[in-house]
């Protein structure tokens, strides 16, 4: 089967400098590692004024406080300046301006654009129109590559390696863009995947075909209580009621995908629980006190990873 179904390098140039980051597939394995190593450097020494005199535009056509603050903190710690808007009601987009025109205007004021937009493919389009590089901070349900890079960073930091790990993905594997991107990235590191989801929200076939074409192992389960002890990483996602065609099916299965403290009893010592946040109820509050709960630290890592991405795209590192 043609792996191109899901895997499409659309943005290949030998340098990261001046190259937009729209999709996780825009970067190679070597480039993932370069970002992670740089992020490690920033974690040790987060305040480096290397962005002096640079302007970064943060264009949030839909609000996402968590992602925006993480980017703005990264820019500020590097000594750069920020302009932009936090939601489209404060931009000219509400007056009916096209994305094309907004980007054309903004790229004459900024050295780099960080953009979040509700429409899928908007970031790729912006990167074509813009004369400065664009970082995709989420385009609808499509891509959110900086989230994936911070997931990789968290995995490597807690496991000491990215190679040969057992990755459990739990919950909504059909619509969850974070698990799809993480799958693509981890497929470069000989991971074994365990997909745990209700029937209606299973991992799409195109991703399973892709893993087969890569010669990687994956297993599918509806419940994870019996296998949880084999996990190195448990990546939890939200199971939303609206995703079910049958509300009774939702009621019947909803508790299956909630992680509770007692389930971790015999799990591996190195095992860590990740979640892209915000969570609703899929991780019970009693898990928070476990040393295996890593989701809050995971979010903090986002700043270092974004410092690494911004400084390498601007050619400052």
């Amino acid at each position: 089967m043609n792996p191109g179904y899901v895997f499409l390098h659309t943005n290949k140039s030998p340098y990261m400098k001046n190259r937009s980051l729209v999709s996780i597939n825009d970067y190679s394995k070597e480039e993932y590692l370069k970002i992670l190593n740089l992020a490690e450097e920033f974690e040790k020494n987060p305040r480096q004024e290397i962005l002096n005199g640079h302007v970064v535009a943060t264009l949030f056509f839909e609000p996402s406080t968590r992602t925006r603050l993480s980017f703005e903190s990264a820019v500020n710690r590097l000594g750069g300046r920020i302009l932009g808007f936090a939601d489209s009601s404060s931009s000219s987009a509400t007056k009916g301006e096209t994305l094309r025109d907004t980007i054309k205007m903004v790229c004459s004021y900024a050295d780099l654009i960080v953009m979040r937009h509700p429409l899928e493919g908007s970031a790729r389009f912006a990167s074509e129109v813009s004369t400065v590089p664009v970082i995709n901070a989420g385009d609808g349900a499509n891509q959110h590559p900086t989230q994936t890079l911070l997931d990789l960073y968290s995995i490597r930091k807690t496991q000491g390696t990215l190679e040969n790990l057992n990755i459990f993905m739990v919950g909504d594997l059909k619509y969850g863009r974070t698990v799809h991107s993480l799958l693509m990235a981890m497929s470069q590191f000989n991971a074994t995947f365990y997909f745990i989801s209700p029937d209606e929200l299973k991992m799409p076939d195109e991703y399973k075909r892709y893993l087969k074409s890569m010669g990687l192992k994956f297993y599918e389960f509806k419940d994870f209580t019996d296998i949880i002890n084999q996990a190195d990483i448990i990546y939890m996602t939200r199971v939303q009621k609206e995703r079910f065609s049958d509300p009774i099916e939702y009621e019947r299965t909803k508790n299956t995908y909630i992680l509770r403290h007692h389930m971790l009893k015999d799990s591996r010592a190195n095992m860590k629980i990740l979640h892209p946040l915000p969570r609703v109820n899929e991780i019970h509050l009693d898990v928070d006190s476990s040393e295996k709960a890593y989701y809050f630290t995971q979010a903090l890592n986002g700043v270092f990873v974004r410092q690494a991405i911004i400084s390498s795209i601007l050619g400052l590192k």
């Binding site: 043609n2 191109g4 179904y5 499409l8 659309t10 999709s23 096209t98 994305l99 094309r100 937009h117 429409l119 899928e120 493919g121 908007s122 790729r124 389009f125 385009d139 609808g140 499509n142 891509q143």
Partner: peptide, 27 residues
């Protein structure tokens, strides 16, 4: 985005026999 703003569509052909297209923008 191509269905919401005036943009020429672009696809890569992922299966030539069945003619299956992958959108360059939204994937």
């Amino acid at each position: 985005i191509t269905n919401n703003e005036e943009i020429v569509t672009k696809f890569s052909v992922v299966d030539k026999k069945k003619v299956i297209l992958k959108c360059y923008y939204c994937e």
